[in-house]
Amino acid sequence: MAGFLQQLVQGLGAGAIYASLALALVLIYQFTGIVNFAQGELAMFSTYIAWQLTAAGLPFWLALVTTLAVSFAGGMLIERVIIRPVEGAPELTLVIVTVGLFIFVNAAAGWIWTFLIKDFPNPFPAGALEAGGISVSFSTLGVLAVVGVVMGLLYVLFRHTKIGLGMRAVATNPESARLVGIRVGWTLALGWGLASTVGAVSGVLVAPLLFLEPNMMGGVLIYAFAAATLGGFDSPMGAVAGGLIVGVAETLAGAYVGFIGSDLKVGVPLVIILGVLLLRPQGLFGRAVVERA
């Protein structure tokens, strides 16, 4: 039983990381209807910025704040420069453009920082909390706490601020939002900025566990996709719940299903994506889209 709980906690820790990247994916999807295949790579790039700043001697938390600010600006810039020209284009075009962005950002990071792996400082103290026969490492607790805080901040932003109200209006109906005086273009850019910031958080969280290298987020991205699909691509709540479920499912499947083991774990997100899309395409918390042909 203790072993099972231990796996469960580990799964939640992994799930929190998937949840944070899924949250970034969902933010962009809500506003622009784009599934951003480059989200993981943008997070990786942000993490490199954080690494560069700490390597230059900045204290960790100051480096983090700077990184988040840079990521926010970078996200807005990408929306303005790269995504704006293809706004409203067919899905095929959007997917190809974000895949292009994926390849470009990945290679650019390799060009600037080489493909050698780098050690990333862990912001949380080593050691673990022991309770009832299971041990929860401080870094797992820290990751869960950070994701919780990010989720809370986003909730406050969307529910209780004027900017958030405007963003929800744009997500619901861009034309009507424009008619009541909301700057739709800038709101979309703001959405991208927010998503990049959330993505940067997930990159910084994942880097101490995985080692920093340009392909770091490739594996995380597919889990985040599964999480967003499971939770529903239009529900931030769902993304977090989906992330936790995916993390737990993957860890338990790896530990208890002998055939899967640790190497075939990556099949879990594939099964989840396929299963959700076939049984409940809108995800657990998403709204089904009714379409007029």
Binding site: T93, I96, V97, F104, N106, A107, A108, A109, G110
Partner: peptide
Amino acid sequence: AAPGVIFGLLIIAVM
């Protein structure tokens, strides 16, 4: 890393 940079930029430019 140059092939990736060129591929990525070209794809976006072509679109």
